[in-house]
Simulated assay, not measured.
Amino acid sequence: MSQVFTRKLQKTGNSITASIPKNWLTMNGLAEGDSVEFILNEDGSLNIKSIDKQTRKNKLFKELVNQDHDLMERLKNV
C-alpha cells in the first residue's frame, strides 16, 4: 500500500529543499550525509531511491574506471 507524505518547499541558501520523512529514512537505514538517487519520470513525477553503501562503491568504481581507460587496462592485469 502506498503512503502519501506532504512537505512544504523551503529556501535553504540558494537551494529549495523538501524534508524526507524520518520513517522512510529509518526504514532504508539512511542518515544525514548518505546519498539517494532522484529519478525523474517521463510523466514529471519524481522517485527517490536509497543507495546502499556497496552500490555507491560500485558506482564510484565504475565512474573512476570510465574516467581513466589506462586504469582499466592496468586492472585487467591484476
Rank of each mutant, 00 (worst) to 15 (best):
M1S: 06
S2H: 03
V4H: 02
V4K: 10
V4I: 15
F5D: 12
F5K: 15
T6W: 05
T6L: 07
T6M: 02
T6C: 02
R7Y: 05
R7C: 02
R7E: 13
K8D: 14
L9S: 10
Q10W: 02
K11Q: 09
T12W: 11
G13P: 10
G13Q: 02
S15G: 00
S15T: 12
S15M: 04
S15N: 15
I16T: 14
A18V: 15
S19Q: 13
P21W: 09
N23K: 12
W24G: 01
W24I: 09
T26H: 06
M27F: 06
M27Y: 05
N28M: 07
G29T: 06
G29F: 08
L30G: 04
A31D: 12
G33S: 05
D34P: 05
D34Q: 09
S35K: 11
S35V: 08
F38T: 07
F38V: 12
I39T: 03
I39L: 02
I39Q: 03
L40M: 00
N41R: 01
E42C: 00
G44Q: 01
G44W: 09
G44E: 04
S45E: 02
S45I: 08
L46M: 10
N47M: 04
I48N: 03
K49G: 00
K49L: 01
S50N: 08
I51C: 03
K53F: 06
T55G: 03
T55I: 07
R56G: 04
R56D: 08
K57I: 14
N58Y: 12
N58P: 00
K59I: 11
K59V: 06
L60G: 00
F61H: 04
E63I: 09
L64G: 01
L64V: 09
V65Q: 05
Q67C: 02
Q67A: 08
Q67E: 13
D68G: 07
L71Y: 12
L71W: 11
M72T: 13
R74I: 07
R74Q: 14
K76S: 15
N77S: 15
V78L: 14
